[in-house]
Amino acid sequence: MPPKRVLIADDTEFFRTALKDILSRAGYEVVGEASNGAEAIELAMTLRPDLVILDVVMPAKNGLEAARAISALNLPLKIVMCTSLGYEPIVEEAVKAGASGYIIKPPSESKVLAALKAL
């Protein structure tokens, strides 16, 4: 299996770094990082990743809006939401918006890998 190309969107460098570390160790290639929803949509179009991990609370389009917009592009990719505890109801909406999985923060290695495996 070739390494999957992943785009990470989170407004904190803290979580982007944490996710990138976990994914790299597991053999994924992080092809881009976005710090807001609008940037995530743009990078999804230009970088054509296989997987987009979207934080829910972000400026300039939140994760949910970004998920809707990216799904609407009809690209061959999967979307995984990354959200804090207490935001589970949003996950349901995210699934409607086109997401296939979710990770509850903080993103530990076991949680992230389990979520990606389930895709």
Binding site: D11, T12, F14, F15, S84, L85, K105, P106
Partner: peptide, 10 residues
């Protein structure tokens, strides 16, 4: 606030 919360929890 949300970001600080998430980072601090982690």
């Amino acid at each position: 606030y949300h970001s600080i919360k998430g980072m601090s929890a982690s």
